[in-house]
């Protein structure tokens, strides 16, 4: 073997080792080391409890060093758990179910949203949607491939409608088609985009209403806190401490008595939103996290998870059942 080919083999072996090290590097998960918590979306009022857990010192008090990281369009907490980049994360139910179908080792520790913030906004001067049959003939926006498409398809099937009974349009990142009245019913996150749109239209003298699928029996679960099965098995005390701190922070965040402190902390992370909008967003977030005084924050609604799995099978989002209930390890309803 000459020197050139030996050097080639050495380079290839080096690259392979580097590759394996890069992807197999597990982030530390024991007390004293930094834990990574990957959110689903950017810092905003919707993640008030997560922000407070960090900046309000809840994690610190529990003896944990946690790095709370923003999510975003290309971020996926479950993949990061598997790749070792995160120890905890926030994922929607459909992400969890899809991951389970493909063999991911993920468990659900708490269900943050008791009511899915994914709702539809429409103008008050249009006929009110009291029954599902009132959707007939409407021009409805959906994000093809998104949760809202699955939810809307379920609602339409429940109403006995076919694609001819309504007009469906693809939704993109900006609200222009809704603002220009090209689309009547537009999907929004009730506590973030919903508040912004409501304000913008109010400025134009228009009032809005929201159409909540949960009112018509479709309880599609939204964001939940997840970790890997391995993490839960190897470090149950760390998981327990993390969840206790996080849920206490959420209790603090949704308590109206703490509003000024909470808004001040959110402002540090979400500088681009106006104060009055943040306040309204927090007000809209409270009933989604804690619909009534008796509800324990983070409690897992097993029935809703089962329904979400059924819907995903009906909508051919997954091929076979995944028995999601076996992966719900947090406190249940």
């Amino acid at each position: 073997m000459n020197q050139k080919s030996r050097a080639g083999i050495a380079i290839r072996a080096g690259l392979m080792i580097l590759c394996i090290m890069l992807f197999s590097a597990e982030t530390p998960a024991v007390a004293g080391d930094t834990l990574n918590y990957r959110l689903k979306w950017l810092f905003n009022t919707s993640v008030a409890g997560d922000i407070i857990a960090d900046t309000g010192g809840f994690f610190k008090k529990a003896g944990l060093d946690v790095s709370v990281n923003e999510g975003g369009a290309g971020k996926n907490a479950i993949k990061e758990l598997e790749l070792g980049y995160a120890n905890f994360g926030v994922a929607s139910a459909d992400q969890v179910i899809r991951a389970l179908e493909k063999g991911a080792d993920v468990v659900v520790l708490a269900q943050l949203f008791q009511v899915n913030p994914m709702q539809w906004i429409y103008r008050s001067d249009q006929p009110e949607i009291r029954e599902l049959s009132d959707l007939k003939g409407r021009h409805i926006g959906v994000t093809f491939g998104g949760n809202d498409e699955t939810i809307m398809n379920t609602l339409l099937a429940k109403a006995g409608f076919t694609s001819k009974d309504v007009r469906i349009s693809s939704v993109r990142f900006d609200f222009t088609p809704f603002l220009k009245k090209e689309v009547d019913v537009w999907p929004v996150y009730r506590n973030s985009q919903g508040v912004i749109l409501e304000e913008r239209l109010a400025a134009e003298g228009e009032q809005v209403k929201f159409f909540n699928p949960a009112d018509y029996g479709v309880a599609f679960v939204a964001n939940s806190v997840v970790t890997s099965g391995t993490m839960l098995k190897k470090h149950p005390e760390t998981v327990k401490a993390f969840m206790t701190a996080l849920l206490s922070a959420w209790e603090f965040a949704v308590d109206p008595a703490n509003e000024p402190q909470v808004l001040a902390q959110i402002k540090k992370k979400d500088k681009g939103t106006k104060n009055n909008i943040r306040q309204k967003q927090l007000k809209a977030t409270r009933p989604l996290i804690k619909p009534d005084k008796g509800t324990k924050i983070g409690i897992i609604d097993v029935g809703a998870w089962q329904q979400t799995e059924r819907i995903m099978i009906q909508e051919k989002q997954i091929v076979a059942p995944v028995d999601v209930t076996s992966r719900l390890v947090g406190p249940k309803k």
Binding site: M16, C19, I20, F23, S24, I78, K79, E82, L83, R98, A99, E101, K102, G103, A104, D105
Partner: peptide, 22 residues
């Protein structure tokens, strides 16, 4: 092939990197 090498070397599920069957 590179993706599959990473998948099998690090034991990733089909959710992160799909296998050939998928």
């Amino acid at each position: 092939t590179g993706l599959l090498a990473i998948k099998y070397a690090t034991g990733l599920s089909n959710y992160v990197i799909p296998d050939l069957t998928l």
